[in-house]
């Protein structure tokens, strides 16, 4: 997504950033919902015991966040309200997301949908889903 700005900035830094963004755009497979990067941005990782999902949703009221797991699909729904622009004020840059959002992640088969923890801190929603006991790597002793 190109950023619009009316403030003058360092040209080389801008070129650098452009190149980076192009690279990032090609790395990700395009989403059916149009944007390669929706809101909130998601980072996903895993350990042998759990699947960790980080949703970067700054400035969201935690009460408006809904996290749902159904048939192995995790859905994060919420709404971000931004401060209203006062009358007679002019908007120079308008890049931040506002409104309702929804993001969906397909979970691996071995997660336990009943062992989920979710916390919101510093504008990041962290969801930790435990893997099923049976799926954890196990060491088998040879008799």
């Amino acid at each position: 997504m190109p950023y619009r700005t009316v403030f003058p900035r360092d040209l080389f830094a801008d070129l650098d950033r452009l190149q980076r963004e192009m690279q990032q755009a090609f790395d990700l497979s395009p989403s059916i919902r149009g944007l390669t990067r929706g809101f909130p941005a998601l980072n996903v990782g895993g350990t042998s015991k759990s699947v960790e999902i980080y949703a970067f949703a700054p400035g969201v009221d935690p009460a408006s966040l809904e996290v749902q797991i159904e048939k192995g699909v995790l859905t994060v729904v919420g709404e971000r309200r931004v401060d209203e622009v006062p009358e007679k004020a002019s908007v120079h840059i308008d890049e931040r997301f506002a409104g309702r959002f929804r993001r969906v992640v397909t979970l691996p088969d071995d997660v336990d949908a009943n062992a989920v923890e979710a916390g919101y801190r510093d504008g990041v929603l962290h969801i930790s889903i435990a893997r099923k006991e049976a799926a954890k790597p196990r060491r088998i002793t040879v008799q």
Binding site: V85, K88, S90, E95, R96
Partner: peptide
Amino acid sequence: PVDVIEDA
């Protein structure tokens, strides 16, 4: 991403 708003 930023928003910049100017008033009086």
